[in-house]
Design a protein around this nucleic acid. Structure first.
Lengths: 247, 247
DNA sequence: TTGCTCCTCACGTCACGTGAGGTGGC
DNA sequence: TTGCTCCTCACGTCACGTGAGGTGGC
C-alpha cells in the first residue's frame, strides 16, 4: 500500500538502506505493482522498525538475520546481551568524553595515576620542568617496552628519591644538563662522587622487606634512556654506561 | 626507541591502525632503524593517544588531520562541539536501549503516544483484538502516507468514537467481519442504517469551534483501507466506496 | 634454527552513499 | 510537459582487517 520512499521516511532510513536489507535477506521483498514498484504493508513497517532497533544497537546485519529465526528464549537472551553491550558502549563514551575534556584542558593522562602524581611532585622536589618532561617521556617508554615490570621499576625509583643523597644526585643530573662537557665539576659527578656512590651501593643492597631485583640496573637504564632522549645539540653528563641494556 | 608493535600495545590499537594514520598523514612517519623498522619516541605515543581520543569520539580521520593545524581557540571550540556530539550519541543510545527493551517485552511503540493510547482503549470500548490490529495497521499506513495530516485525521476519528451512534456503527463493522456476505443483516448496515446515517451527517456538519476539513472523507478512507488490508478469504461488509481516494 | 616481529602491497569487509541511465505517475 | 519517485547495476567510501610473500632479530 505504501512505496519504498514513504516507508523509508516513516521509519527514518534511506531507500537504499531498505534495498540493502532486501538484498541481505533481512526484510522479505514485497509484492510489486504494475510498474514494478515495491508495495509495502504495515507489517513490513513493523518488521523494519524491529530491524532498525537492532541495527542501531550495533548488531551486525548478518546477526540480525539469524535473530529472526531464533526461538523466544534465545531471542530474549540475545536481547539481554545486546542491552548489556549498549551499556558498555555508553560507559565507553563517558570515558572518551572524560579523556576529551582532559585533552581540552591540555592535561592528558598518559600514564598510571601514581606515576602521574610522582611527575607532579618532581616540581616541588626542586626539579626543572625539562627534567619533568624527560621523566614523563622516560616512563612512557618504559611502560611501553616493559609493561610487566614497569610498575616495579617505578615503585623503586619513587622510593630512591626519598633517599636524600640520591635525591641530591638526581638534582645534580638535572642541573648538569646546561653545563659544558668540559666543565671541571663534571669530573666529580653522579655515582662517581663518593657520597653518592655510597648511597647507591646502600640502595643496591637488598634490604629487609624485599628489595626489587631490578633496582641495581635502574640508574643505568635511566642514564641510557636519557642519553637517547637528549635533545640534539645539548651536551650530556659524562657517565659511562657499564654493561649493556637492551632497549 | 620503541617499535610499532610496542607502541600499538601501549596505546591499545593495531599496528595496521598506526600504519593507516601514517598513510593518511595523521601521524608523521618516524625514523627507521638499520633494518627498516619504524622507531617511535614518547612524543609519538602522546600524539597517537590524542588522535585516538578524537577518533573514538567519532571524529573522521580527515577532520582530525585538520584539527592538528587548528589554532588554540578553533581547537577548543571544535572540542566543545565534539563533546556535545558525544552527549547526543549517549542520549541516542539510551533511546535505542529503551526501544530494545520494548522489543523484548513485545510491546513496540510504532505510533505517536496518543494513537497508541487510543489503540489500547479500543479493547475497553468493546472492539475485538483483530479490530485493534487492523486499526494499528491502518494508522501506520496513514502516518506513513500523510504525515502532515495524519494527526488531524486521528483526532477526528478519536472524537467520532465519543459519539454513541458512531461508536455502535464501528462495533457493527467489527462484528460483521465474520458474517457471510449473504447475511441478511448486512442489508441494513453501517451508514445505510437510518440512525447511523443521521449521526454521520451530524458529524459531517461543521460544528462551532472548528470541524476538521477531512472529517467527511474519513469514514470512506477507513473503509477503503480496510478493504485493502482485509485478510484474503474473509468477506468484507458490502459498503459502496462513494468516489475515489488515492492511497 | 625457531618463533616472533617487522616490512610492503593488495584485496576484503561492513553498511551503506552516490551517480548513471532509464522509466512511471500526477 | 515538468518534477518527483521509482527501478537496476556499478562503483565509491570509511576505517580498518587479513593474508601473501619476504626479511630481520634473539
Amino acid at each position: 500500500v505504501i512505496t519504498i520512499g514513504q516507508l523509508a521516511r516513516y521509519v527514518g532510513v534511506s531507500t537504499k538502506t531498505i534495498r540493502v536489507y532486501h538484498a541481505k535477506g533481512l526484510l522479505p521483498e514485497p509484492e510489486r505493482d504494475a510498474s514494478g514498484y515495491r508495495r509495502y504493508s504495515a507489517a513490513d513497517a513493523i518488521e523494519l522498525i524491529k530491524i532498525r532497533t537492532l541495527a542501531e544497537s550495533g548488531v551486525p546485519l548478518a546477526r540480525i538475520r539469524e535473530l529472526e529465526a531464533a526461538t523466544g528464549s534465545d531471542f530474549q537472551s540475545s536481547l539481554a546481551a545486546i542491552d548489556a553491550e549498549i551499556t558498555t558502549r555508553i560507559n565507553a563514551l563517558h570515558e572518551t568524553q572524560r579523556r576529551l575534556r582532559e585533552l581540552a584542558s591540555g592535561h592528558n593522562h598518559l600514564l598510571p595515576n601514581d606515576v602521574d602524581r610522582h611527575l607532579q611532585q618532581l616540581g616541588e622536589l626542586g626539579f626543572s620542568p625539562r627534567w619533568q618532561a624527560m621523566e614523563r617521556d622516560l616512563w612512557i617508554l618504559v611502560f611501553a617496552t616493559r609493561p610487566e615490570t614497569a610498575h616495579a621499576l617505578f615503585a623503586d625509583q619513587a622510593g630512591a628519591l626519598a633517599e636524600p643523597a640520591l635525591h641530591r644526585m638526581y638534582l645534580e643530573y638535572d642541573r648538569a644538563y646546561d653545563l659544558d662537557p668540559q666543565d671541571p665539576s663534571l669530573t666529580d659527578f653522579g655515582p662517581h662522587r663518593a657520597s653518592h656512590g655510597r648511597a647507591l651501593r646502600h640502595w643496591r643492597t637488598p634490604r629487609p622487606g624485599g628489595g626489587l631485583s631490578h633496582s641495581p640496573a635502574h640508574p643505568r637504564l635511566r642514564q641510557r634512556l636519557l642519553s637517547r632522549l637528549g635533545t640534539p645539540g645539548h651536551p650530556h653528563p659524562r657517565t659511562t654506561p657499564p654493561g649493556r641494556l637492551d632497549l
